[in-house]
Design a binder for these strands. Structure first.
Lengths: 140, 140
DNA sequence: ATCCGTGCAAATCGTTTGCAAGGAT
DNA sequence: ATCCTTGCAAACGATTTGCACGGAT
């Protein structure tokens, strides 16, 4: 998915929900669509500001929460840090966080997914959502 | 491990670190040692207060953080809730949180543990710690 | 012309901290 | 007698919100 297509998808999702596309929001959608690195609200605010959009942090938060409600972005809350956001248009994945650099990698493992479902089922539950985070360090 | 043995272990760990055992701390250690349910700071504060110990919330936080530094309790930060605490004297386990009741269950799965290590190794990392949480709902 | 969205500053929530007084060693 | 701990209230950082004005539909 190209950045432009992604930005358009964001816009469409918001419009469908009756949310108006203002100058501030349009700028934010572009910044978000171009992000490949799980930025937090302040980073998005800074990028939008650097791009010349007059946006306030409150608007960043409000827009992010509208996008999350529409299901087009995901909010990830890792340990001891501000929430980070990512487009939801890729398939489900988990995260590996480099504790030294803060870098985030994504990974998928079907066997783990299946085992989780089995564990929940055994105890009479079904999984609503789950969170698997590996805090890692580069091997010497 | 009995509650008394656990409380004593907490006390020993603190003493070893040069931390003084005050009336407030002794009361908190007893409350913590008796907890089977992953309480948060405010619940511990309320239990200690109910037990007749004059303790302030600040002291609860300070004592919890001393215990965590000594490695005898673990702080668990689940989604959208205050941090919860549990004694660290049981073997490693992950958590299943009932989204309707807030109830927390523990589980262990060796296969998942092994898969996680493999995934990290494949990408040139070693795991420092990890977090696996299943947010679940009782099956109909 | 509607209402929704905006920026600002103040409010919130869980948690931490500076300070002067009190208690454990 | 040290020097750690306490309670209080103020500070904190991330996020949310009330308000009066401005802009998208």
């Amino acid at each position: 998915m190209t950045h432009e297509a992604r930005a358009l998808a964001f816009e469409t999702a918001l419009r469908r929900a009756g949310v108006r596309i203002t100058r501030q929001r349009a700028a934010l959608l572009r910044v978000l669509a171009a992000a490949e690195d799980h930025p937090d609200a302040i980073q998005l605010f800074q990028r939008a500001t650097a791009a010349g959009a007059g946006v306030s942090l409150a608007t960043v938060y409000r827009t992010l929460s509208a996008l999350e409600t529409q299901g087009v972005i995901l909010k990830q809350v890792f340990e001891g840090a501000a929430a980070r956001f990512e487009p939801a248009d890729t398939r489900h994945h988990d995260h590996m966080i480099d504790v030294d650099t803060g870098e985030v990698h994504e990974f998928v493992n079907e066997r783990i997914e299946r085992l989780q479902a089995e564990i929940a089922a055994e105890m009479g539950y079904e999984i609503v959502r789950h969170r698997l985070e590996l805090y890692v360090r580069r091997k010497p």
